[in-house]
Design a protein around this nucleic acid. Structure first.
Length: 646
RNA sequence: GCUGGCGUAGCUCAGUUGGUAGAGCAACGGAUUUGUAAUCCGUGGGUCGGGGGUUCAACUCCCUUCGCCAGCUCCA
């Protein structure tokens, strides 16, 4: 008597009747069962089965609603694509083809290289394979057999992969006449991949190693039905529209010029946003007991040798020579902070000593990595160095974590946390690293914060906690970082006098909250799709007279708002009111104040909000008061009453 | 830096097999004086990223260089 269980997505198990082959389960029973158990139709595929099952096995039914289910689905789609590529280009060598968030890719070595022009042919072949509905069949092979097979095909990549595998643990998945080395699991058959699209092709190093050959990576995505695929594609198109590089031009915030690749130029409107961010930053630092310092951009070579940057960071630094003396342009602010610390004899009573610095740094990034404001060669870090006793570490780290959370919450930004440990190129002893790493870890645990460990990704002088925020195209960017450093105080021989009257070595934290203000601005532009909260908006309100006869009153309204410190403009161009409104909308100006006969009579303004539309008339005084409230509280939405949508 | 792609007016883009460039928006001028997302008419604007080559002739082909885009490697 066979006993096979199906584990449903809700965690419960259901026994299946005898005689169901795994394939049957997968292709038919699985979905039906799952639907019955959940009391609803599953909008998607059932995935993830092995082809041979033993008594007592549990079969997990994955739906497309789960990440695991999507992985199986997309991974099967990757096989489907590889199969189609082999039909279109029989002499292609295959490397690996995993699923990724929202899709999949396959790394291939095609000669001549595939281009997007080949996509239609490949997609047509894929469609034919979907129609054929060939099952994915798992089978185990010996290492020798696998090696022979792929050597015969001349696929050096698969051969290398197999060489790294243990004999006895090698499985193939057959699908029609296509066979691929794979751990699985897969969909029962190709017929389920109803909707797919190849998206792009780009280069990728074999095994992620820049010293190895570059392969072609074909990106694609797949969904259980066309509707979901179309929705996804529409979302992508929408995301592209909020690309900060595009909005930066449209909103006249910043520009780039060939005269300085990677060096951003901020326009007046961009500076308003930036300065508003910094006003907030200053307030918060004052509250949290930080002092502020400023240190030079270029400093003597000897200092960089002492700090270790000369040995560990030289390839990213700019240099200059003045009066036959070597200088480096600072890529980080810490050495300057060290020198300030050393200007006096410090006591334990002075600690923790928190010194913030809006430090402009230059880093010679490789040309291919530049990306709008999010990856530049000159940027300003909202840096701070906290000097403290070892006993103060936890409290200070927690303080910074809270700080980051407060700031990000204000913008409604979600973030992911990572703990990065000791890299290969590093300074300091094993114990230092051990203590520093566990201090950061325990602070995160004390905060009950979920985090991922990123082995070997720390700074050369210490481990760090990184906060990652995503851009509109789901690319993740590191913003805030908290780095614990025992090494730099050692190198600079920092000391403080303890209660015992003896000299002790302080520990330091390097931290940024926004990260780089340029990058943070880039992310905010995308996060808000250009519609900054009023406190950040370059223009907070525009007064629009319905006709030139009302320009006087419009100017009066403008003057009243200006006097209260608001950023306001009058649109007195000879265009129509509709045109001016449209203009203000495209510029994402929060408030449009329409004034005509009625408003002039009653000393009111007709308020239109960029998102909520017409909010009706308000007395000028009331509007000023509410706007003030909205700006003062740095609110995300309007402080005015918004009629409820039906 | 690597692989691939792309550089045409301020912006978004057309430009057929090589025969010295067009549109919409923007700008400017004029008319219009308008009640919640584009009023109408007109004008100016480009050594087609730079340099070199092939050709009677190059925006179109080739080389080179710079920049941009996607991804990889690297990073705030």
């Amino acid at each position: 008597m066979s006993m096979i269980f199906v584990q449903l997505p809700d965690g419960s198990k259901k026994e299946l009747s005898e005689g169901s082959s795994a394939l049957d389960l997968a292709s038919g029973i699985g979905r039906r069962l799952a639907e019955a158990a959940m009391g609803a139709r599953i909008n998607g595929a059932v995935a993830g089965l092995a082809t041979t099952l033993n008594d007592g096995d549990t079969v997990e039914i994955l739906t497309f609603d789960t990440r695991e289910g999507q992985d199986v689905f997309r991974h099967s789609a990757a096989h489907l694509m590889a199969s189609a590529i082999m039909k279109v280009r029989p002499n292609t060598k295959l490397a690996i083809g995993p699923s990724i968030e929202d899709g999949f890719y396959y790394d291939i070595d095609a000669d001549p290289p595939l281009t997007e022009e080949d996509f239609p042919a490949i997609e047509a072949e894929m469609a034919a394979l979907v129609k054929a509905d060939a099952p994915f069949v798992r089978r185990e092979v010996s290492k020798a057999e696998a090696l022979n097979h792929f050597r015969a095909q001349g696929d050096i990549y698969k051969v290398e992969l197999i060489e790294g595998l243990e004999d006895g643990a090698i499985t193939y998945y057959d699908n029609g006449d296509f066979t691929d080395l794979c751990r699985g699991p897969h969909l029962p058959s190709t017929g389920r991949i109803k909707a797919f699209k190849l998206l792009s092709v780009a280069g990728a190093y074999w095994r992620g190693d820049e010293k190895r050959p570059m392969l072609q990576r074909i990106y694609g995505t797949a969904f259980p039905n066309k509707k979901q695929l179309d929705e996804y594609l529409a979302l992508r198109a929408e995301a592209e529209k909020r690309d900060h590089r595009r909005l930066g031009r449209q909103l006249d915030l910043f520009s780039f010029h060939t005269a300085g690749p990677g060096f951003p130029f901020f326009h007046p409107k961009g500076m308003i946003v930036l300065n508003s961010l910094l006003d907030f930053w200053h307030e918060e630092h004052r509250k949290r007991g930080y002092g502020q310092v400023r240190t030079p951009i270029i400093l003597d070579r000897g200092l960089w040798e002492q700090s270790g940057h000369w040995d560990h960071y030289k390839e990213n630094m700019y240099f200059t020579q003045i009066d036959e003396r070597d200088y480096a342009v600072k890529p980080m602010n810490c050495p300057g902070g060290m020198l300030i610390y050393k200007t006096a004899k410090r006591s334990y009573r002075d600690l923790p000593m928190r010194m913030a610095e809006l430090g402009t740094v230059h880093r010679h990034e490789k040309s291919g990595v530049l990306h709008g404001l999010t990856r530049v060669r000159m940027f300003t870090q909202d840096d701070a160095h906290i000097f403290m006793t070892p006993e103060q570490i936890q409290k200070e780290v927690i303080g910074v974590i809270d700080f980051v959370d407060t700031v990000y919450s204000l913008f409604g930004l979600e973030y992911a946390v990572e703990l990065s440990t000791r890299p290969e190129k590093s300074i300091g002893s094993d114990e230092m690293w051990e203590t520093a790493t566990s201090s950061l870890k325990s602070a995160l645990e004390a905060k009950g914060m979920a985090f991922k460990i990123n082995e070997g990704d720390g700074a050369f002088y210490g481990p760090k906690i990184d906060f990652h925020v995503r851009d509109s195209l789901k690319r993740s960017w590191q913003c805030a970082t908290i780095q614990l450093d025992f090494a730099m105080p050692e190198k600079f021989d920092l000391e403080y006098t303890g209660p015992d009257g003896n000299a002790h070595r302080p520990v330091m934290i390097h931290r940024v909250i926004y990260g780089a203000i340029e990058r943070f601005l880039g992310i905010l532009i995308e996060h808000f799709a250009g519609a900054f909260p009023t406190w950040l908006a370059p223009v907070q309100a525009v007064v629009i007279p319905v006709a030139s006869a009302f320009e006087d009153y419009a100017k009066e309204v403008n003057g009243a708002l200006f006097a209260r410190g608001f950023r306001v403009e009058v649109d007195d161009s000879t265009e129509t009111m509709k045109y001016k409104i449209r203009n203000a909308q495209t510029q994402q100006i929060p408030y449009m104040l329409v004034v005509g006969e009625r408003e002039r009579e009653n000393r009111t303004v007709a308020v239109r909000h960029r998102r909520h539309g017409d909010l009706g008339s308000l007395s000028l005084d009331t509007f000023v008061e509410r706007l003030g409230e909205e700006v003062r509280t740095r609110a995300l939405d309007t402080a005015l009453a918004v009629p409820k949508a039906e």
